[in-house]
Design a protein around this nucleic acid. Structure first.
Lengths: 192, 192
DNA sequence: GTAAAACGTTGACTTGAATCAAGAAATCAT
DNA sequence: ATGATTTCTTGATTCAAGTCAACGTTTTAC
């Protein structure tokens, strides 16, 4: 259950036996059923989540409209870093789209590791750096690419995503209405 | 020249005398004239910059169109973290809009500090965390707010910015054309 | 000081996505 | 299995920003 997360951490920084043991001791494995929430707006995000398998959707509400930020499949990390770092309530909702298995650990426990074993300070830094890189990539995609191009790229780079996730969620992820995505799809099909 | 940056670092983590000295030893003060570039697309960003005073504009080109990301005034930090971390060429351009004084240090030197003095690993972590927070805030603003609302909020929260920076750059920052900003301004004025 | 360049405003027109509405297709719950 | 709900598609219309073009104003460079 925890082998994948250990592998992922070790790709960040090599851990000796004691360090690995310390890390393992703070982990908690959890199962979420379809439609269950791992995080809901208003709550404080004080955990880091590693997705073993399943599918999750991350979104937030703006004036009653759901704004999809990202989808998570197996072998990916998630935390609302803003809430995690500031201790303020999150605006994000993370919902399982399929039954999913995750491994989590608490901020509290991570900060103890920061203080007791210097290597984890490094892990934390690289963690934050990776979080930055992924948000900045997402950012760039969103601001630079037209919805139609983004959809075409999505088809190329993550076809499994397009297949497994309802279209109206993908539309929301692309920042357009379902009707518009439907028309984009039609346009792509007929132009081939 | 370096008192502000030291103060800023100390607000992240307290440094003892040796640590402060080590940090000071890697700093370099630089002056940039109006229109000079601190960073240009295609180059690799291997520095972190602290702005003592002046005004800078950060932008990148998409198909010949400049896309303004942010403005920097005194007491602010800048690095293209993506290029800094990955070592890949940047797409960002950082240009002085007024004569500006900055303090910089090299990635190379920072990484030596990471290895020689553990406190800097912590500084690096908090740095990355702050970078994440600011990009995520910017992100949120951009995706949630209509250009007109964003402009009104900008007037409220950073009036000095609106006054000191040419409108077409502000338009670019808001993600709209100068003509549109001009019309928004007219709308706001006549509605008062 | 003056010519050139950059900047800002306004009008007419175009365009791409949103909205509203209705119906078809797929999925879910019992 | 079947009725209910959700999801997807299509058409007609609206709307906000973009585009193109012209012109007045401000700033810059020499």
């Amino acid at each position: 259950m925890t082998s994948k997360i250990i592998q992922s951490i070790k790709s960040i920084a090599s851990l000796n036996e004691a360090e690995e043991k310390a890390f393992l001791s703070i982990l908690e494995v959890k199962l979420f059923k379809k439609k269950e929430f791992l995080l809901q707006e208003g709550k404080i995000c004080n955990k880091i989540t590693f997705v073993n398998n399943g599918i999750m959707r991350l979104f937030y509400n703006v004036e009653g409209v759901e704004n999809t930020i990202q989808f998570f499949f197996g072998d990916s990390w998630y935390t609302d870093y803003a809430s995690f770092l500031t201790g303020k309530p999150t605006i994000e909702n993370l919902q399982a789209l399929e039954e999913s298995e995750v491994v989590q650990f608490k901020k509290e426990d991570l900060y103890k590791l920061y203080d007791s074993m210097p290597i984890f300070e490094k892990v934390g830094r690289i963690f934050a750096e990776n979080a930055y890189l992924s948000i900045s990539q997402l950012n760039q995609m969103k601001t630079n690419e037209e919805p139609e191009l983004r959809y075409i790229n999505l088809l190329k780079t993550r076809p499994e995503l397009v297949q497994q996730i309802p279209q109206h969620y993908i539309a929301s992820y692309l920042g357009i209405k379902p009707e518009t995505l439907s028309r984009i799809r039609k346009r792509i099909l007929t132009s081939k």
